[in-house]
Design a protein around this nucleic acid. Structure first.
Length: 429
RNA sequence: GGAGGGUUGCCAGAGCGGACGAAUGGGGCGGCCUCGAAAGCCGUUGUGGCCUUCGGGUCACCGUGGGUUCGAAUCCCACACCCUCCGCCA
């Protein structure tokens, strides 16, 4: 959420930011108007309440002096003022609610160094690592949705039978590989990140803090009977850990990681790049996340990217790093770097990690603060996060990339300890 | 799912209609004392909004949301969460 005071004090800055994102900067008119209305009504209400408080104290004093019968006139005036205050308060509440609703739908402002651009096509490729798209042999050109079922490691049909399309089932060494990937990601970040195993079903407020609600309600699974939401990413519970809390500066940055299932309805995306594991409703992911001071945020952002990137590199996959343009940023993000792996069989670049800096946008929504070591008061935290490893797409790229001339799949060495000694997935017999 | 008890400041805990933003104790911070420390003594110690001539003023917050009242931490209603017991259960 943007700071309404920023809109008030530096409207041009806000409008320029919104324009860069392709949002209508015209909303600031209404924001400023509502802000003034809210403050005017609240000031009036507070004045009235001050008078009521004063009169009530006078009445109290009269009662103590045993002159309670002289209080009638004061009570009448106080009641009048109280009624008026109540009416004014309703106006203030209505305006404040509308203001908040508008602010909740408004995205974060892009960072100054976030590249300009309108859409995905304008994202900047920072670098490409490993073989490029032409550097793969014919054995590696079989898409995972073909070789997975063939090798008995991916059961798309059974997944659909159980839960519908875009739900998949891994089996045998395919399931082991999925588990190995999450273990690997957790273990290699355990040097600095506290491992969390959070709930995957959360309250509405929890989804609001990170930005999934209210704007993207259709993208999430909602359990109506209990009014709980299935998390689309561990970012949701991990960010909300510190909701309404005040951390000490000397404990920052706080680094957390979690392996969870992630649930996404993917409304509207049916039929489009949804084959196999390209896009699924439920998947496993290890998320790394940090709370930082504004001063620390830049270095932490670099660190998260380095960590997310190094797993992919060490797995021997070809990948590239994108700097998302302002128009392609997620609602809460000020700057995002994407890691995309190349899947030679599917012949596609697949987004496997989005490493984002949210400035104080999420912190303001969820009231995440810290107490500076120097000076007084509190400041909003900065939040950052990225996928350390998202299973399905990495799994797909690995299987396609690792395919050998005999049809077996070579498992990268660093996964061997997690694969009960298997170095290959045997070929179809 | 059923019955009962609870939720107050950093912590413990009092307050149950008016002088309560909140006793008291502990903790923290500053000071006195000391070579230094302990003990003791003194002072101080929440968050947020709005206004400000930057001195301050004012409002709100005692789980959350409503209500009663001139006035609510205190009374009423609903909900959430926690604890205990019963039931059920990995």
């Amino acid at each position: 959420m943007l700071d309404i005071r920023l809109v008030r004090d530096d409207r041009t800055l806000v409008e320029n930011g919104l324009r860069r994102r392709g949002e209508d900067p015209g909303v600031t008119d209404r924001l400023v108007e509502l802000d003034e209305l809210v403050r005017r009504s609240q000031a009036r209400r507070d004045d009235l309440r001050a008078e009521v408080n004063d009169l009530s104290q006078q009445i109290g004093a009269l009662h103590r002096d045993g002159r309670g019968d002289e209080a009638a006139e004061l009570q009448r005036r106080s009641r009048e003022l109280g009624d008026e205050a109540k009416a004014v308060d309703q106006d203030a509440d209505a305006a404040a609610a509308e203001l908040r609703e508008l602010l909740l739908h408004l995205p974060n402002l892009p960072a100054d160094d976030c590249p300009d651009g309108e859409s995905e096509a304008d994202n900047v490729v920072l670098r490409v690592e490993g073989p490029d798209a032409d550097g793969y042999g014919p054995d590696q050109r079989v898409p995972h949705w073909e070789l997975g079922p063939e090798l008995g490691i991916l059961d798309i049909e059974r997944g659909a039978k159980l839960s519908g399309s875009m739900f998949v089932m891994y089996r045998g060494l395919g399931a082991t590989l999925a588990r190995a990937l999450t273990q690997l990601a957790l273990d290699r970040n355990a040097d600095a990140f506290e491992e969390i195993r959070p709930p995957t079903l959360v309250r509405t407020e929890t989804m609001v803090s990170t930005g999934q609600l209210p704007k993207f309600e259709d993208d999430a699974y909602h359990i109506e009977r209990d009014d709980l939401w299935a998390i689309p990413t561990a970012e949701v519970p991990l960010t909300s850990l510190a909701r309404d809390e005040i951390l000490a500066e000397d404990e920052l940055p706080v680094r957390l990681m979690a392996h969870t299932s992630c649930f996404r309805r993917e409304a509207g995306s049916a039929g489009r790049d949804t084959r196999g594991l390209l896009r699924v409703h439920e998947f496993d992911k290890v998320e790394i996340l940090a709370y930082a001071t504004p001063e620390q945020a830049g270095a932490v952002h670099d660190e998260l990217l380095a960590r997310a990137e190094s797993v992919i590199a060490d797995l021997g996959l070809g990948y590239r790093i994108l700097d998302l343009c302002a128009g392609d940023l997620g609602i809460a993000s000020a700057r995002t770097w994407d890691i995309e792996v190349y899947a030679p069989g599917a012949d596609q670049w697949l987004e496997v990690s989005s490493v984002s800096w949210f400035s104080d946008y999420q912190a303001r929504r969820g009231n995440l603060r810290y107490r500076p070591a120097e000076g007084k008061g509190t400041r909003l935290l900065h939040t950052l996060n990225g996928s350390a490893l998202a299973v399905p797409r990495v799994w797909a790229a690995l299987v396609e990339t690792g395919r050998q001339p005999d049809g077996s799949i070579a498992i990268p060495e660093l996964l061997h300890p997690y694969m009960r000694g298997h170095t290959h997935i045997p070929p179809h017999s």
